[in-house]
Structure formats: C-alpha cells, structure tokens
Design a protein around this nucleic acid. Structure first.
Lengths: 231, 231
DNA sequence: ATCTTGAAAATGTGATCACAAAAATAATTA
DNA sequence: TAATTATTTTTGTGATCACATTTTCAAGAT
C-alpha cells in the first residue's frame, strides 16, 4: 500500500482534477520523490489527494505516455527503473533534441527574452549558492524551457519535457547519495551566443551544457549509484 | 454532433477498452480520416465504439499528450489544424530525430533485422504499385519503426510516433487532393549502408528519405493544399 | 521448516449517475 | 429584419458502484 507522500501544490481556479493530479504526480516524479520500482495504486493516489479514481486514471495515462510511468503486464503502474544503457540513450537524445530546439529558437530571440534568461540564470545561481538542489534543478529546466519556447511554432517542448521527466527519478537518487551535486552550466556562454544570433555557437553551448552537466555521469558511477540505492 | 466514422479494428483478447479506444482513434487520426478542426465528443466516441465515457476519456488524454489532439480552453477536443510553419517544424524535427534514431540503431543491427527490412520495403513497393496510399504510408512507417527498434534500449520511438501522428492528418488531406502521391524513398540505400554498418551513410539515407519524401512539400504547395481543403 | 491451498483483501476496469458549464435553439424585443 | 434574452440540449467532469482479476496472507499438508 502506497502511503504516498505528495507535496501539496497550488491549484489555480478552474483547474480540473485530472489536470491537478497530473501536475502533482509529475512534480513528485520530476524531483525524484517517488522511488523507481515503487508501484502506484489508483485508489492510493486518489485518497492521497482526496479525489476519486476517475481523474487519477486520466492523469496516470498521460504520465505513462510521457514516459514518466510504465504500465506492467499485470496492469500495475510504476516509475521505471533506470539502467546505465537507458541513461545513455536518454542523455544522447537530450543532447540532440535540445541542440535542435536551440537552433530553431535563435531566429525568434528577442531582447526581452534574453533579459528573462539572465534573470532565470541568476535565480539558479542563487539556488546553487544556498545548496537548494531541487530548486536549482527546476530553475535550470526553466532556463532551457524559456530558450526553446522563444520559437512560437515549436513542437519539441513536450519531447524535451518527457526526457527531463524520465531522467528525474535518477537525479533524485543522485542528489541523495552524492554529497553535493555540483552544478556546472554554460548558460552565460549560450546567452552570449544568442546576443550574436550565432546558431552554431548556441548549439555548441547547449551541447557542452548537457555533456558537462548530466552527461558527466560516467557509466561506472551510474551503476555504482544504482547499486547504492538498491536498484 | 460527430457521427464518427471509425474503421472497425481487430481487438485482441484481454485488451482493455481504453487501450482499444486509443488504438482505434489513433489509427483514424494517422490516416487522416478525422478532419483537422473537427471536434470530438466523448459521448460520441463512446457511442461509436459501443462503450462508455470513462475509457474513452483515458484514450483522449493519451492522444492529446501524444500531440494527436489538442484540448481547447472550452475543454473541447479537436485534431489540431496544420499550418505551413508547424509543418516545417515537424519535418525538421522528424529529420533530426530519425537520423539520431538510425545512428543509435546501427550497432544493434542483425542480419535477421535486415531481412525484415527488405521484406517490409518489398511490401511497401507492392502497395505503391497498386496505388494503395494508406497501406504504403503504414508500411513506410513500419520500415522506419523496424530500423529504430533494433536498438533494444531506445527511448526515441514514442517521439517519432508522435511526429508521425501529428503529420498524419495533413497527409490525409494531401492524399485526397493530390491525384497521386508519388512515393520516393531511400530504403535500399539505407539497407546497403546498414550492411556496411556505416552510421554516417545510414543517417544520410534517412535524411534524404525524409527531405525528398514529406520534406518535398514546398511552402506554397502546403498553403495551397490547406486552402483547397478549406483549412 | 517449506510448500501448497484456500479465503480475504486489494486493485484495475468500465458503466452509470448527478452536476455545472457551455452550446444550440427558440422566443422575444427593438 | 436583426439583435437580445430565455430555454433546452449537449457536453465535460468527477464520484460511485459492481465485477473480475490479482495479490496478500493465513491455515493446512508434506
């Protein structure tokens, strides 16, 4: 039985229950507060957020098609376990996807947009300084999201978000077992390249940002971490 | 009121109703038999497939997170309309995604797998010969899917499928208004490159396959087609 | 002690119902 | 006739229930 610990979450007026359930579960998975391998029950979730099975089921379907959850043959639902191979696939795909997203955003970048990126980057640095890993993680995503969303016709963000979501639970484990997850980023380099509207340089900055950030986990380190976490 | 024309579909034993509904709607959207802009109703679909709202809602949530459907502010659900800009985004993303998928598959390619690719390509040629556009479209997808799925740890297929699904309705329109959708493909070139385990050549074949296939639609042609279809 | 068997509880699933919001239609007014 | 208002219908939403399957757990047998 899953005595589920779900962070309460602000619920705007008019938000449907299934959307709220989706957001709340998504956040929990993203920051790794639901353990990979841990199985979720519809009734358990419904009880935890004081609603009923129907909207919870809709939320679970969405999350499973976003890759955040996996439906087993027994129809049980769980957060998928990470493996070193899957991690490698996710990171290399993330790199390719985000480089492309960045390139397609460059023609649409405005000064207003760059200001916003500066602002988010500053907030992230502050989160890092006060060692708030979870906040830093979310602000890092916000930086990337802001950049890629500058392209008004973009169709890539749902896929990028899906990758982040699939990497989330592992990052949660990493943050628990690594004393201090040291953040390196190439955000200033990316911003400088954006100011010059230099697509290649922007893509290079994003590529480096990813390969030096989450891509920095070596195979042995991943396997070790997973073993430590009992996965 | 949508007097929905849904092709009947084989339903294997033990398949849940929501999964069946998902498959059936997905297929209808993929081949373009549901018009962009046409709005769907939960009860209408439930009635059309002789079930009830609950499983239909689950299917609709999945499809909307796959990009096949869009939820409006009024909570109405419709097949999104295509624009020339969105088409361009989808095609360029498809090219990048599938080149990457192909590269990551190369190390895992077996002779068995190449045989299967030959077989699918042959079937597609036959479908083209008998001018069965819908079958040719599905077999073309099967070729690509077979290739990318050779990588056992791949995480990219859901995203590729999502792109296909988003392009589907437009292809449906194109097939109706263009006398004969002439298929060009680089499948044999891809297979030859696979035999040599040459990643670059495989990626090049896929890139050409896409840019000469669906990428061949020029901006003016797209806008003209959409105008013709009353979009 | 280990395995097997049976009952009880838990779980996913799908249909149905009530409610509120939205859309469509009819009636009324300017 | 055109615009506005009122009424009816349609629609999305969420809770509840019954059913079948699976899982869990305790009692019994080897």
């Amino acid at each position: 039985m899953g005595n589920l610990a779900l962070e309460p979450l602000d619920r705007p007026d008019g938000m449907t229950t299934h959307e709220y359930a989706h957001r709340r579960l998504r956040q929990a998975i993203m920051v790794g507060s639901i353990r990979p391998g841990e199985s979720l029950t519809i009734r358990g979730i419904a009880e935890a957020m004081e609603s009923s099975p129907t909207p919870v089921r809709e939320a679970l379907r969405r999350l499973s098609s976003e890759g955040a959850l996996r439906v087993l043959d027994n129809r049980r639902i769980m957060v998928p376990r990470m493996t070193a191979d899957r991690f490698s696939e996710l990171v290399s795909l993330r790199s390719v996807l985000e480089q492309h997203a960045a390139r397609r955003a460059v023609p649409h970048i405005t000064e207003r947009c760059i200001d916003r990126l500066e602002e988010v980057d500053r907030a992230q640095d502050e989160a890092i300084a006060r060692k708030d890993n979870a906040a830093a993680l979310l602000l890092n995503q916000e930086f990337h999201r802001t950049l890629y969303s500058a392209n008004p016709e973009q169709v890539i963000m749902p896929m990028v978000e899906s990758i982040w979501l699939q990497l989330g639970p592992f990052l949660g484990i990493a943050m628990e077992h690594v004393a201090q997850l040291y953040f390196v980023d190439r955000h200033q380099e990316a911003i400088a390249a954006l100011r010059k509207r230099d697509e290649d340089a922007v893509a290079a900055a994003i590529k480096a940002d990813i390969s030096e950030g989450i891509g920095g986990f070596e195979r042995a380190a991943i396997e070790n971490l997973l073993r430590l976490a009992g996965q």
